[in-house]
Design a protein around this nucleic acid. Structure first.
Lengths: 247, 247
DNA sequence: GCAAAAGTGTTAAGGCTACACCCATGC
DNA sequence: GCATGGGTGTAGCCTTAACACTTTTGC
């Protein structure tokens, strides 16, 4: 906290919007802040000799325990008014640190937004030292967010929608084996609209990126759906061109 | 140059890829650097109390004389190895400035890439104080670029392609009145491939965003093509949904 | 046996591609 | 008059969207 000024690239931070999919719901990993009812995106600073991507990977590893993460920068947020100097000033006081006027944390920060796609079950949510909890929240039921984090989240979602046909979104968010209705719900959640079941299946099958397994998902209350897995090689190939058609 | 450390946000720059269209060619505005055969993208720094967008607008205003500019950030380039400390160190020496080791210019810089679309005929190319010339260069015939500027340019072009159906690209790059073949050439240049003349016309007309004027472009060596102008209101509206179909 | 979810096929409409002919102009 | 580019229409194919019935399962 005191040495940050020497260790980190000045005036620069990054924030990560980490998406996961569970219970047929799209979720975002958030940190509960101390002494307020605000939540924050996991974020961090960039070491002086570190690439942005490495810094984001590091942050994600610390919050989720996952190493192999799909990460993508999507926007820089640089409004001079976005920095909350008061928050950091209070926080430093509480930590008993002499908050000089030019303390590195009290300057303006420009933040690079990254979004990440992770497999829900692989994640071990871990708070950082500025927060009291680290939890998944339903995308459509998110509480008060810190500073401009709401705006960052919205922009991430917008980007995710646009890139749905060009990024391995299903592959990164779903477990190895999944059912067609699960895949469809994922698409519906991201796009925010209902899709036709039959047309969805046909389209997905036509891409040739799925392998239907012989197993079915038992235990549900109804007809057992087939399990599928991705044919990764064909998926990657298909993404280069973009999956045909829009939703 | 000496006060920069106090005026600017530290370790942060921006670079602009300025696209124009002339002679049925897509062009990029570049700066010729002193004492080398390298060219650079117009760039600059961000004042401590300035938004990124305002800084980019300022840079563009200075290089082109244009105020109302279409600008979009597209990527952050943050590789620690991208900064060319040697270049700045030499330059400072030549300027007779004592280049202390911690001079603000000699630190690592992270740069935000913006692309701009401008109407060629409105631009008055103006070099900055680090360059000896400011000129348009054909997109497909660009010389040696400084540092990672080639990479920045390529990424800008990639983004432009992806956003072709979602941004007012024709409107910003073409003069008020233009012909259908000109519009088509613009699309072909950006996409890097030939399109069918008849299908292109039909598609463009079907969007309902063009108004065919009664005039034709005379003076060409052949049949005089009609002039068109954009129906701006409908264009804006159509872009919200994205122009249908891909190329 | 009933409610709820999953699997599947057909049809009609619209969009896309490919293609050929006529017209205007400058030389 | 000829070479060159501009304007236009059509037919076949493919994709998409809309839609209903049957099957399986747990209760």
């Amino acid at each position: 906290m005191e040495k940050g000024g020497k260790l980190f690239h000045p005036g620069l931070s990054l924030d990560c919007v980490i998406f996961g999919f569970h219970d047929n719901q799209l979720k975002v990993l958030l940190l509960k802040m101390e002494h307020t009812d605000h939540w924050a995106l996991p974020g961090g600073f960039v070491y002086k000799d570190e690439t942005l991507e490495a810094a984001a990977t590091r942050v994600l590893q610390e919050r989720t325990g996952i190493n192999d993460i799909f990460l993508q920068q999507f926007h820089v947020f640089g409004d001079p008014a976005r920095s909350d100097r008061k928050y950091h000033s209070n926080r430093l006081k509480k930590l008993g640190i002499e908050a000089e006027k030019d303390h590195w944390l009290l300057n303006r920060f420009i933040t690079v937004g990254f979004y990440a796609l992770v497999e829900f079950s692989h994640v071990t949510p871990t708070p950082d030292n500025t927060s009291v909890a680290c939890e998944w929240q339903h995308l459509h039921n998110i509480g008060n967010l810190f500073m401009d984090h709401r705006q960052i989240l919205d922009k991430a979602l917008e980007t995710l929608r646009q890139q749905l046909n060009y990024q391995p979104i299903g592959y990164k968010l779903l477990p190895d084996k999944f059912t067609m209705p699960e895949l469809q719900t994922l698409y519906e959640t991201i796009l925010g609209k209902k899709l036709d079941r039959r047309n969805f299946q046909r389209r997905m099958n036509s891409y040739g990126i799925l392998r239907r397994l012989k197993e079915t998902r038992k235990g549900g209350a109804h007809k057992a759906p087939y399990l599928y897995s991705f044919n990764l090689r064909k998926y990657q190939q298909a993404l280069l061109e973009g999956l045909q058609g829009g939703w």
